[in-house]
Design a protein around this nucleic acid. Structure first.
Lengths: 209, 209, 209, 209
DNA sequence: AATGAATGAGGTTTCATTCAT
DNA sequence: TATGAATGAAACCTCATTCAT
């Protein structure tokens, strides 16, 4: 029995088990990206994966856990892409530039996955009306950018943002990136370089002292 | 017969008919705002309105028409709120400031309605995979802000944005507003004035020559 | 209150009441003829009549009574067309010829009405599984032809049919006529004269001594 | 995956799948035969089969496919019963006799199935007002009898029928058989042998030179 | 006499989930 | 482990019928 395994005890999973889960998650991502969250039934996902619906239920306690896994994998991939690129920068200004740059590149190179998560964040309102999932998303995603901004303030290279934690500025940058993602979904042939350059210009100007 | 009436022939509706439709739309808005788009079934909406499911079907040809009406009412309310406030301004800089300001105020005063539309835009992926509805939304909503930016460029008070039509800058502003909306849903006690002030600062700086 | 009036006490109806009922029945016939029994909802009928659904319910106790009325009017029209033409004939052979001839002509000249009744007969199975309506139809419709056949037997101009009442022969003739009706519905440009001639030939030969 | 399988690829179905489909089809036939086409909802059929409505949807893409299957099975059974009996006959006259005889016997031995199909043919008017299904039925069912008649004409043992293809004569024979079917439904204790004998007499006389 | 409005049962279909094999 | 089969709730929609006006 592997059901009801929370992600926390994933150490107990066998290699093959992890591989199967990964495969299913991959198919779920593609399905959501292609047909949208609302249409992404387990049946659809199973069909794409060429497995039976039951398999999904076997490996994941329920649909929610599967979706959760998509988010988890996304965050891990995202962090391991962004963090090292940002950290090697010398100045907050450079860090901000690279943050924006690498985010847009990451989106471009992981369109399906990113789109799937965006879809999920948009839709995931839990039954009891809370926005838990989306909130988590924001907290995790917002932190790095807030750190850059705070550091810039402390070093005196950025202007003073509204406190605490330059939240508005951070959110605006995040919204710009997420909004870009959705625009990219609508218009896949967007000129990403142009978009990147302009966004950097915008936020360079708006953080400058 | 009120079914299948396209918005264009809404003149033919009786007063009482319009009132009933308005009431149902109102309940639909509340339902979407509270439980989210995915959970907002006709049953849920009817329950909140304390009417039978059939009543909705009586007044609206189908669910789609009901949702469409929500969007239509939203745009009308939004336009009649924003447009006059922006138009009386003298300079593009002032117009931009008032655009941001009035948008945030509008969101604050119409939380449920705005949230419902945001939810719908996020979810409306038509069966054939296109993003028609969302695309329309963007085009309609993006235009006014693009006009302000273009005017500012021509008058030489704004810097040169990427062409055509300052699309990236406009989108970034829109994303900031929509993102604020979602943040407000998550944290209803947000300090809106502070948020407004900071957003104006941000986009003032990023449009300046 | 006119509801629940059985056809038997139709004497009590006002002139205007009868006219209204007749109008509704007419529209019901057209509707059934055009969209088929299954799709002929009260809504459809009302739309064609350009009245509200409620009017129908006002004049007829329920849908069943309306349909019954269609059948009644049909039988009256049918009888008053066929009977006099058949009765003036001298010999059973001539009566049979005229019966077939006038039936096909009647069908041709009352296509919608006839088709509607055929549709109803095909569909009218009462809830408790009996075929009351269709059975009545047969009894009423079969009688005249049976009389002709019996008379011909007694006069010695027709062969001996299986008794009692030459039922099989009568039914076969009726089936030929009803089957022609449905064929006419499928192929409205049928050559009716040719069809008539051939049917007369067929049943002339099959009744001959 | 068994859904949306057209009859052509039914080879791909597992044995158990075919068995289940057959069982459901069987129950559908019984239901239509007992309560009539109009009342034969999936719910009714499921209830009779003592399964959930979902099972039917699982095995058949939709209601239409289920009904189609009833017709397909009927035609196959009918053809494999009639054809060999007719073909071994020497003369057209004998073929016609056996055609009528075996049709009535087939109806007698497959009352429910035949009745169900008759019901369906009567009711199947497609949404766009055409009689496609019924038309197909007629074409397929009419052909064998037309062939017999044509052959008889060419051999000079039958009289000259109206051309082309002795359509009226063929239709009359078909109508006699279908009409007998409905009469049998209304009066299950009909003397079939008597009926058969008389029908043969009728059509023997009416085809004779 | 007529209407518009409302109802609620019932239709088909989809889907997450369970279970025996 | 994996599967196909089955379930039943819930979705949207249609419709005959009722009722206040």
């Amino acid at each position: 029995m592997c059901k009801k395994n929370k992600p926390t005890n994933q150490k107990e999973m066998s290699f093959i088990e992890k591989a199967r889960r990964a495969q299913i998650v991959e198919c779920a991502i593609e399905t959501i990206a292609e047909v949208g969250y609302a249409q992404a039934s387990l049946g659809q996902i199973a069909k794409r994966a060429k497995i039976s619906k039951g398999v999904i239920s076997y490996h994941f306690a329920n649909k929610e856990e599967l979706l959760e896994q998509i988010a988890i994998e996304y965050y891990l991939a995202w962090q391991s892409y962004i963090a090292p690129r940002v950290e090697v920068q010398k100045s907050p200004k450079e860090m901000l530039r690279v943050y924006i740059e690498s985010n847009l590149t990451f989106v471009d190179e992981n369109r399906k996955h990113v789109f799937a998560v965006i879809e999920m964040v948009s839709n995931k309102i839990t039954a009891d009306g809370k926005l838990q999932f989306a909130a988590d998303h924001d907290e995790v995603v917002l932190l790095p950018i807030e750190n850059i901004l705070t550091q810039g303030m402390q070093e005196g290279v950025f202007r003073e943002f509204t406190r605490p934690s330059a939240r508005v500025m951070a959110l605006t940058i995040r919204n710009a990136i997420d909004g870009f993602t959705m625009e990219l979904m609508r218009k896949p042939h967007l000129d990403i370089q142009e978009y990147t350059r302009e966004l950097i210009t915008i936020f360079d100007a708006s953080t400058k002292k």
